[in-house]
Design a protein around this nucleic acid. Structure first.
Length: 108
DNA sequence: CTCTTGACCATGT
DNA sequence: AACATGGCCAAGA
């Protein structure tokens, strides 16, 4: 596993491994995927070659806010999707990182 | 090879 | 608290 495909392959693998009801920040994914900067993560998800198998909606900002600028299928759909998965949101419209942030994958 | 842009993050004002 | 700037790395033209 974790074959050294490209940095992208690692990103997709990590994102696909995000458990339901949990979310990860771009920086977190970048760190676990051994990617240089979170920008590459965002870029990788942007190309999104397997959107049906890559839950990019489970990837959020470090603040817990959702993707600004572009949605994978509509505006606000991401939030609806996360809510349906069991992710908790705050009154501020952000993800409750205290409860939904996946840190179990933190690879030392 | 060089320049620009990009689904970010942290800091400063 | 909100807005603006800098820095990081990679891919496209």
């Amino acid at each position: 596993m974790q074959k050294t495909t490209n940095s992208y392959g690692r990103i997709y693998d990590v994102v696909k491994h995000i458990p339901e009801g949990k979310v990860m920040t771009y920086g977190q994914v970048a760190r676990i995927a051994n990617v240089a900067t979170p920008r590459v993560v965002g870029f990788a998800l942007h190309v999104n070659p397997d959107e049906q198998h890559i839950p990019c909606h489970r990837v959020v900002f470090a603040d817990g806010s959702l993707t600004q600028g572009y949605a994978f299928g509509g505006e606000g759909v991401q939030k609806e999707r996360l809510l349906k998965e069991g992710v908790v949101f705050t009154q501020k419209g952000k993800v409750d990182l205290e409860n939904s942030l996946c840190r179990t994958l933190s690879n030392s």
